[in-house]
């Protein structure tokens, strides 16, 4: 069997393939989302509209719920047993909390990059091929192609192409994180969630990841949680400011940083707390 892959990942989510591509479509529409850890009300009436092919940054002091929020978008938050949610998150028009929405399906089109690089203790190749394999792609040639393309996409191909069969833990922290981004690209997601992806990295690795985010934005919608305001200013198109589980302000990044409409945003931006 001779199978050839199209090299361009589909820009649209599968569900929206037949819709006309508008200038900026909504990927996520969050309506009155509330979330509790036990009795702790962690997210309060969150409303956000996240657009396609944009980088949306989420900022706020520690404990403001920004990490919880991003984990809600692919329902990873449900791994905490005491979590309760209500409200609606529409992903391409479909509520992700619907009973018949399988989390596996959601997470296949929404990739995630974590705070700490978390490669599997397997070879570099097997790390990238893991996702496709899990989803039934077995053909060696296709896998080879996916691995190369994903590693190129994460700008790490040149560094690892000669040692694809070595354990991923031989890589530096920054390389590991880019490997994790590549692993996430391998299943060609539609959205990439990044939960403080550079918090464990040195400045040079951070810069590389930030450049990569700019690059990836052409093909993916990216939501990035960061505690670093300069990072948000550098990489994002839109910024949401979270405080005590509420969205205080959500706007164009330039506006948030130059002319915020809320006093609390201004205080936070200018470093008065947090």
């Amino acid at each position: 069997m001779d199978t050839k892959l199209t090299t361009k990942p589909a820009k649209e989510g599968v569900k929206t393939m037949n819709q006309p591509v508008a200038a900026r479509q909504s990927v996520y529409r969050v309506n009155d989302l509330n979330l509790w850890y036990g009795d702790d009300h962690a997210l309060k009436d969150v409303n956000l509209d996240i657009k396609q092919n944009e980088v949306t940054a989420i900022i706020g002091p520690s404990g403001c719920g920004k990490s919880t929020f991003i984990k809600t978008l692919n329902r990873m938050v449900e791994l905490v047993p005491i979590v309760r949610t209500n409200g609606v998150i529409e992903y391409h028009g479909r509520n992700i909390f619907d009973k018949d929405y399988e989390v596996e399906e959601l997470r296949t089109s929404v990739g995630m990059v974590f705070q700490q690089p978390n490669p599997f203790p397997k070879s570099i190749y097997d790390n990238i091929a893991y996702g496709p394999r899990v989803h039934g792609v077995k053909n060696k040639k296709i896998l080879d192609e996916i691995v190369e393309r994903s590693l190129r996409g994460a700008a790490i191909w040149d560094e690892v192409k000669d040692r694809l069969n070595e354990n991923a833990y031989g890589l530096s922290g920054g390389q590991q994180q880019r490997l994790c981004i590549a692993r996430c690209l391998a299943i060609e997601p539609d959205v990439i969630l990044m939960d403080e992806p550079t918090s464990a990295l040195d400045p040079i690795s951070t810069l590389k990841v930030e450049e990569l985010v700019q690059e990836l934005k052409k093909d993916y919608s990216i939501i990035i949680v960061t505690h670093n305001m300069q990072q948000a200013a550098r990489v994002s198109d839109k910024t949401a400011f979270f405080l005590n589980g509420e969205v205080v302000e959500f706007d164009q990044t330039d506006r948030i940083f130059s002319n915020p409409s809320d006093k609390r945003t201004e205080d936070y931006i200018s470093g008065r707390f947090g």
Binding site: M1, T3, K4, T6, P9, V137, I187, E188
Partner: peptide
Amino acid sequence: SSNKSVRELIQQNR
């Protein structure tokens, strides 16, 4: 006919 993206491949397998 097998000229398709990984995402479609995955979808099909699913």
